[in-house]
């Protein structure tokens, strides 16, 4: 299959999730004698194109009108490039960006779309895929009819391919400002600055739940433990609702899906919606005062106790011996 991978980027590098999506596409291409090509959209794409070209050929759509990811414009370009290049498969990492933009492109391209794919095989000339349903309680085996096929994959289920020895070709695609739809006007993005890694890309995630009473306690306990471990902070929905954490911290069925090396659930009960977002982590540690909390059913290590007592002690002990189990963060 001829695969087009829609990249998500920060202007400098392609996101780790998109590299994982390329890993999926590269495997499909290898099994079917196909190819992989990036589609990168935005403005001033030199740096990110060069980064991407270390992995696959690049089509770069560079235009001031594409500076922000507005769904109507981006989807129009993805649709156009998919048709022109006669791609069979359009791939992206399952993120809010892809759900919005690639989902719309899927509607322009005939609707043969599978979201959140976690496994695949090539069988009798069909791409057979698996995706979770019912908050991850069920795994569905699905096939798509129609072409092109549009697939978003969970980055937690795929690995980035090896970089190439020589960088691949970078081509620019023409953007016709006249025909680009402009019904959506992008105004601003409000983020909370943080010195910690992104929760979807971190190797270690410490998440807090309703046990945490306010923002200061979150920073002191969850932030403190995350720093002592060199990880990112996340939270359950309960803390987002309480205004203690921003929405982008939410791990779960309707938030971010993570699968780090280590996930620490601190004062989280383990509702199905939360488990859906973290139960595939390599190692799970749960701290909760209720020994019957469902979070312990998915945990490798459980500690029954009051987080207000246990966590400060954990932080202290981890700090006492800085030569710990994790390497220093890459700079």
């Amino acid at each position: 299959m001829k695969c087009l991978v829609v990249a998500e980027h920060d202007g400098a590098t392609v996101r780790a999730g998109s590299l994982a999506a390329l890993g999926f596409a590269a495997d499909v291409a290898a099994q079917t004698g196909g190819s992989t090509t990036w589609l990168i959209l935005g403005h001033e794409l030199n740096d990110v194109s060069q980064h991407a070209a270390r992995y696959a050929a690049v089509l770069a759509g560079d235009h001031p009108l594409l500076a922000a990811p507005t769904a109507d414009r981006y989807a129009a370009v993805i649709d156009d490039q998919t048709r022109r290049g006669e791609f069979d498969l359009v791939v992206a990492a399952a993120s809010t960006f892809a759900k919005d933009v690639v989902g719309r492109a899927g509607g322009l391209l005939g609707g043969a779309m599978a979201s959140d794919v976690v496994a695949h095989r090539w069988e009798n000339d069909r791409l057979v895929m698996q995706r979770p349903m019912y908050a991850g309680a069920v795994l569905a085996t699905v096939v798509l009819s129609g072409s092109p096929q549009i697939v978003t994959v969970r980055p937690t289920a795929y690995a980035a391919p090896q970089p190439r020895t020589e960088p691949a070709e970078i081509a620019t695609v023409g953007i016709d400002a006249e025909t680009l739809p402009q019904h959506i006007e992008w105004l601003e993005l409000e983020t909370r600055p943080t010195h910690r890694p992104d929760v979807s890309e971190a190797q270690i995630v410490v998440s807090g739940g309703r046990a945490i009473r306010d923002r200061d306690d979150f920073e002191r306990l969850i932030g403190g433990l995350a720093d002592a471990l060199g990880g990112a902070t996340g939270s359950s929905r309960a803390l987002v609702d309480a205004g203690i954490t921003p929405n982008e911290f939410q791990v779960g069925q309707t938030g971010k899906i993570v699968a780090p090396e280590l996930y620490c659930a601190v004062g989280i009960s383990g509702a199905v919606q939360h488990l859906a977002g973290m139960k595939n982590s390599k190692m799970i540690v749960a701290i909760n005062q209720d020994a019957d909390a469902p979070i312990f059913e998915v945990a490798d290590y459980g500690l029954v106790g009051d987080v207000y007592q246990v966590v400060p002690e954990l932080i202290q002990r981890l700090k006492d011996e800085p030569d710990r189990h994790h390497p220093p963060p890459e700079s």
């Binding site: 349903m133 309680a137 569905a140 085996t141 798509l144 799970i284 490798d300 459980g302």
Partner: peptide, 17 residues
């Protein structure tokens, strides 16, 4: 467009220490 061929439940294989 999207054909569901098979469903299975998933279960946690972990046991808590």
């Amino acid at each position: 467009r999207l054909e569901i061929r098979h469903l299975e439940t998933t279960a946690s294989a972990r046991s808590c220490q």
